[in-house]
């Protein structure tokens, strides 16, 4: 995930300072990992070095760093290119869940894989319940609903895979033991 591009997107609406960017990020992407301040300033530093943002002023009231930044023309171009670029659809199968099942079958046996799958399914289901409740709560923001939809869609795909894998593993182990 590209924090830099999200910051560029937030700056597209006008200049903001670092603290403001962090708040806006966490509010607009409610289920993303909250940004650390250090990360905001480091990212702004890199964006400035690359010519995508520039300092646009200092708040006078002293206190913490109140430097505000604005998007440059290059920054606007860069954001536009990113927005138009299609992401490669899942080029690699990388998932801890997938690896764990394969390794369980390699290092142990079908029963070990099954125990893991059962526990994982139950954890996935309770997370899905939480998200479903969150997005059905009256007053949920569009960010909350979109984030929950996204997470639920992925959990559902995982759950379908867990279910199918269990059935395949069962059929396979029967074949082997017979």
């Amino acid at each position: 995930m590209s924090t830099a591009h999200v910051l560029l997107g937030l700056l597209a609406g006008g200049p903001r300072h670092g603290y403001d960017l962090k708040r806006a990020h966490d509010e607009r992407l409610p289920r993303a990992k909250p940004l650390a301040f250090g990360q905001v300033y480091a990212t702004l530093g890199r964006l400035e070095r690359d010519g995508y943002v520039t300092e646009s002023g200092q708040d006078r009231d002293g206190g913490p760093d109140r430097t505000s930044y604005e998007l440059t023309e290059d920054g606007r171009q860069h954001l536009d290119t990113w927005l138009s670029a299609v992401e490669p659809p899942a080029p690699y199968v990388t998932s801890e869940i997938f690896s764990k099942v394969v390794v369980a079958l390699l290092a142990a046996d079908a029963e070990r894989a099954r125990d893991y799958l059962v526990a994982q399914r139950s954890a996935h289901m309770s997370r899905m319940r939480e998200l479903t409740t969150a997005k059905s709560t009256p007053g949920a923001s569009i960010g909350d609903v979109l984030a929950a939809d996204y997470a639920i869609g992925h959990l559902e795909a995982d759950l379908n895979w867990l279910q199918t894998t269990l059935t395949r593993v069962a059929a396979f182990s029967k074949e082997v033991t017979n």
């Binding site: 799958l117 289901m125 899905m128 059905s136 959990l155 559902e156 269990l166 059935t167 033991t177």
Partner: peptide, 28 residues
């Protein structure tokens, strides 16, 4: 499962009996 997530609790049936684990009675 996205529909089941609206429920308080889930019961899984498999071949006419309850599957207490929710998965995989098939593994010996």
């Amino acid at each position: 499962s996205s529909v089941a997530a609206y429920a308080d609790r889930e019961i899984v049936l498999r071949d006419g009996v309850l599957d207490p684990t929710g998965l995989g009675l098939g593994v010996a």
